[in-house]
Nucleic acid binder design. Structure first.
Lengths: 210, 210
DNA sequence: TACTCACAGTAACATAAGTTACAGTGTTTA
DNA sequence: TAAACACTGTAACTTATGTTACTGTGAGTA
């Protein structure tokens, strides 16, 4: 854990802070697909992601879903932070997109570190900033782009996150993430295949040239 | 200025911090419609809103616009904060929705205050948290609701912000905010009128029962 | 007054996306 | 092996939204 923490966060945090994290943090390994947080949960610790990716989803009152963004190595969940501090319920759902390793830090330390460590303050602010920018990108995507373009963005991002040009998902799963229906996704995917950009197979999609 | 600062922020900030703000802050009055920040601007001071409302807009590369949310009394612009700290360009546009009064605080103080004042830390975190929640609401709105419902939400919010049941905007202006076309807005407004929810007039809309 | 202009109403049509229904084909399970 | 199931393809239709074009009307202005 110590080595991995230093690899992912050593360039961000002072040594003293790294040591504190080692003292109070808990190392965790999460399997792909595991639901790490549900809407309405109260949260008492904050994740520092060491490897893998976490998928952050929004859901409305009818159960309709939408993918917001992914968290990656060296990042944390600002919303968790906000929830911790404000004692509020989570507004989002978090699911491990890949196997993931992370360190959980108890909320109780946050106030103290924010006061004492400049590098922690920077990290927290940068984290908020990044999350806001991700949300703006999500807004752009749904407000300004049509579904075919969003689908292309989605496939590219998914390939990047999983480091694999095969997208191992069904059309139905993609439809959930983009908040549309399976038939619509099949239709658009077929168009992309006809354009030579992808190859369709059962349970996976091979990216050729997006 | 001192009295207004205390009225709006006295319950949030320690006296010592209030005094510091008075030392370094600049009082400003902004007329309705004034563009306070443009996409791409660099920002060197942070606004603390004392009265009025600020409209925050997003714009994509084609010049298409979308209203994100409003800032009100007691709030600040987290994105400005993030920009200040990270020396980054603004991702959004800010326009005074009503006449507004605010205090501008130079960025240079922020790091110091975050270190020294617990109330400032809380304010900053709460501010980020609120902004993220506003953005989630915006995402919900465009992802999960149809235009007629979004229009109703928009009219209600506008009436609340301006404290006026007459919405003094043209259909074209509303269309810009919701990122659609004038014809579509006219059509939907006419339907709402036929349902007895609003009254349409030249250059304003009277809300009856939304 | 006559002209111009901004604003709103509306029809007619185009397109993107959602919906329903059903067929075909691999995969898993009884 | 036969049945059940999951996944994909596709047609046909509906609906929401976008687009174009034209009209009428009130407000301001030459």
């Amino acid at each position: 854990m110590i080595q991995e923490l230093k690899t992912s966060y050593g360039h961000l945090f002072e040594d003293a802070l790294i040591n504190e994290i080692i003292q109070v943090g808990t190392y965790k390994e999460i399997p792909e697909g595991h639901k790490m947080m549900e809407i309405g949960d109260y949260v008492k610790s904050m994740p520092l992601l060491i490897s893998g990716a976490i998928k952050i989803m929004r859901e409305d009152s009818n159960g309709d879903e939408l993918l917001l963004y992914y968290l990656e190595k060296g990042e944390t969940c600002s919303m968790t932070m906000a929830c911790c501090l404000g004692q509020q319920k989570s507004e989002i759902r978090a699911i491990a997109e890949t196997d993931a390793k992370l360190i959980m830090v108890p909320v109780s330390k946050m106030e103290e570190w924010t006061k004492n460590y400049k590098s922690w303050r920077n990290f927290v602010f940068e984290s908020y900033h990044n999350r806001i920018n991700e949300l703006l990108t999500t807004v752009d995507s749904i407000a300004f782009y049509k579904l075919d373009e969003r689908l292309i963005q989605y496939l590219k991002e998914k390939a990047r996150i999983n480091n694999d040009h095969r997208i191992k998902n069904t059309h139905q799963e993609i439809a959930y993430d983009l908040h549309t229906s399976r038939v619509v996704i099949s239709r658009l995917l077929k168009k992309l295949e006809q354009l030579g950009k992808i190859e369709l197979h059962r349970n996976f999609i091979k990216i050729i040239n997006l």
